[in-house]
Design a protein around this nucleic acid. Structure first.
Lengths: 195, 195
DNA sequence: CGTCTATTTGAATGTACTCAAAAGCGGTGG
DNA sequence: CCACCGCTTTTGAGTACATTCAAATAGACG
């Protein structure tokens, strides 16, 4: 089925499954469409479903003591999204997840995933690899935050996610790289006036 | 055998193995002792072994354009350590790993781990869980870096790793939380003079 | 259109850094 | 066992990168 293709491509890039397993796997997902700005998770709830984005863009973020948002991740088409802490341990979430555009996502519940790990052991490998890739990305970002000034963090973001630059509001990128929207605006106008 | 106990405890907390599997698993590790300041990995090499610390403390860090070190992780007794990027993809490392104290580590090569995944499929689960926990820790640290001022990052570090405070030089903690050693020193003397 | 939010611009401020120098501390060799 | 050397920590003065607050402008959406 068409709508499953993105998800299935992603999975089959890493592991093999029989036709029966494939069917068993895909049937556990529930499709959900949601409009821009609508939430899939709020701080204080439990993240009971892990998400796979088939259309649109999600973002996860934390809100600090002063009410400022800090973006942890953007998830465009083909990406997984969730609050790993809340989902794996079924504890209260520290993150918010919402849609930056009208979006479609597949949802997979913790209970169903736990059973899938038993029924289709290759999935352990798939999600191990995903988690490892995620570690690699976070390590890279952390080093970038510790060692680069704001302008270079912005340039690194442009390099790493060229397709996101075009569709994200500047404010969201500012939040991701860890500066105020005002400061990002100034940096960019300074840069363009230098040419 | 005594020296394996820490490693085995750690593994058996997450998965079950037969005695035969246990033997098969442990025999793939190679014990290495190394002195303070000695390297287990340098930038530009390939991280061919993942490490499990049985004694001492390791640290992984990057060096930026200006020659400043930025600590990514400390690994005391009972922790795993490696450059995930370099190890999983067998590419040139971006990190350095060295010993902050005289240490003992178990080393497991990429080739042996790949074979272990085939022979003992439960290991997929074990390393999936480790990677997920690692993601959780990095997410927390990133949010902390984005949303807290230096003093609160220091306090968060004290909370998260109380046992490390006592044995790490201040300079290393400064590097981990992302400030200069001079500034951390000033913060701490300011704080103690306030009481 | 009108409203709401995002972006731009500016002036004042602050947190953290740089550079420099002194003091403390630990390890090593004589 | 003490003396010395190197590295860590402290302290201070000057600086810079980034923030805050405010207000004007521009864009997006209903």
């Amino acid at each position: 089925m068409m709508m499953y293709s993105l998800l299935w491509e992603n999975v089959s890039r890493h592991i093999k499954m029989s036709e029966a397993e494939k069917t068993r796997f895909l049937e556990d997902f529930q499709l959900k469409k949601l409009k821009k700005k609508h939430y899939l998770l709020q701080e204080g709830a439990v993240n009971s479903n892990v998400l796979f984005v088939t259309e649109g863009i999600l973002r996860s973020y934390a809100i600090d003591q002063n009410g400022f948002e800090h973006v942890l991740q953007f998830a465009p088409q083909g990406w997984w999204m969730g609050d790993m802490y809340s989902f794996t341990r079924q504890k209260l979430a520290r993150l918010f997840i919402d849609a930056l555009e009208n979006s479609s996502v597949f949802m997979l519940s913790k209970a169903k995933l736990d059973q899938l790990y038993i029924d289709i052991p290759q999935l352990e490998r798939y999600f191990r690899i995903l988690a490892e890739n995620s570690v690699i990305a976070y390590q890279k970002r952390l080093i970038s935050n510790l060692s680069l000034p704001a302008m270079q963090r912005y340039e690194a973001f442009c390099n790493d996610y060229p397709s996101l630059i075009e569709c994200l509001p500047q404010k969201q990128i500012a939040s991701y790289i860890g500066v105020t929207p005002e400061f990002l605006s100034k940096m960019l106008s300074d840069r363009s006036s230098r040419e």
